[in-house]
């Protein structure tokens, strides 16, 4: 009896909390600030610079949404979240939006009651080994010691991969990326496994990157993307279409440099609709018609963001690969702006 009363109260509170945050857009506008959950620090994706300004690939999504909704990309309060706190922070309403290299999985989408609004980076788990180990494929890693971050999907993927291939391994559990690098360099493990983007960033700053290779096998799918709470579809639409606008802008050649000019009108109706010179897509999601223009002007299109934070011209040097536009053989494909 008592227990059910308690559970009932809990459920009622949750429902109330759900109701209360139903209009995230109004909350954000009233507050004049977007509260965005980010990583506590991940090279290229989210990191504060020497002056405390957050920068990176995931941070750009926050900035774009803030620009679209509030008209100012700087009106974001960044809440650094850890792997443990990120979902509770979003569910409890502490943050409006989580943009923290989070893998879109079935259970997170359904059981945890979140809405993944899209994918901003297609990642996958890979392995890095020392060159003198003489291994050229992950299938030759039988009996190896592997440094693995605990409590992540990578840990489960690793177990699956070795099981499927009838191999054994000895895990060396680590807590953070920095610790993993240190253990790997100190020779505590033969192989280091994490997302391929992380491996590339890690290898890039080694003293002797030429002595380490990233094995060609990618053993998992890690579609990383921003997510919001269930139950507020308008807010999910805003975030989804802001991300789509950045991706579409690259496809149509709209950049932060020429967006002002193109917004005066072009002969491409798709661009015109996106930038608000034709139709009124903005009002359909509760914003004005310049929302996409502001987002693109604030951060640049997807390609510009990629190049500035993690692309080949940066020390991290990630190739576009799967993250190229569909016209270039990648997976980025936005539904039409119509």
């Amino acid at each position: 009896m008592k227990k059910s009363v308690f559970l009932g109260t809990l459920a009622a509170t949750t429902v109330l909390a759900g109701f209360a945050s139903a209009a995230t857009l109004d909350d954000v506008k009233a507050r004049g600030e977007l509260i965005c959950g980010v990583n506590t620090g991940l090279v290229g994706f989210a990191a504060p610079d020497a002056n405390g300004n957050w920068q990176g690939f995931d941070v750009a999504v926050c900035k774009a949404v803030a620009a679209a909704v509030l008209g100012d990309a700087s009106k974001v309060k960044y809440v650094p979240t850890t792997g443990e706190t990120r979902f509770t922070a979003l569910a409890s309403g502490e943050i409006d939006l989580l943009s923290r290299n989070t893998t879109w999985t079935f259970s997170r989408d359904t059981d945890l009651k979140f809405t993944f609004v899209g994918v901003n980076y297609y990642d996958g788990q890979g392995f890095m080994v020392r060159k003198d180990l003489g291994v050229s494929s992950a299938k030759e890693l039988d009996g190896a010691t592997v440094c693995i971050q605990t409590g992540t999907t990578t840990e489960l993927n690793l177990a699956d991969f070795f099981k499927v291939n009838n191999m054994t391994y000895q895990p060396v559990p680590i807590n953070t990326n920095a610790e993993g690098e240190q253990q790997y360099l100190a020779g505590a493990c033969d192989a280091y496994t994490t997302d391929a983007s992380g491996l590339a960033a890690t290898r890039a700053v080694f003293a002797d990157p030429e002595n380490h290779i990233i094995l060609p096998e990618i053993i998992s799918k890690e579609p990383l993307g921003p997510l919001v709470r269930h139950g507020d579809d308008q807010w999910a639409d805003i975030v989804r279409w802001t991300l789509n606008a950045l991706i579409a802008a690259e496809e149509y050649g709209v950049t932060s440099a020429n967006v002002e000019e193109l917004a005066k009108g072009t002969n491409n109706p798709e661009i015109n609709r996106m930038l608000g010179t034709e139709g009124d897509l903005g009002t359909m999601i509760g914003l004005d018609k310049d929302w996409a223009k502001r987002a693109i002007a604030a951060t640049g299109n997807y390609g510009e963001v990629f190049a500035a934070s993690i692309g080949e011209s940066t020390p991290i040097g990630l190739a576009r690969g799967l993250n190229a536009q569909w016209t270039q053989g990648g997976l980025l494909y936005t539904p039409p702006f119509r």
Binding site: D49, E181, Q182, A204, V205
Partner: peptide, 17 residues
């Protein structure tokens, strides 16, 4: 840990353990 990780998350200082 917080500040240390944040500092190490910039590509300049990644690897300063």
């Amino acid at each position: 840990k917080g500040i240390t990780d944040a500092v190490r998350a910039s590509i300049e200082w990644k690897g300063a353990y």
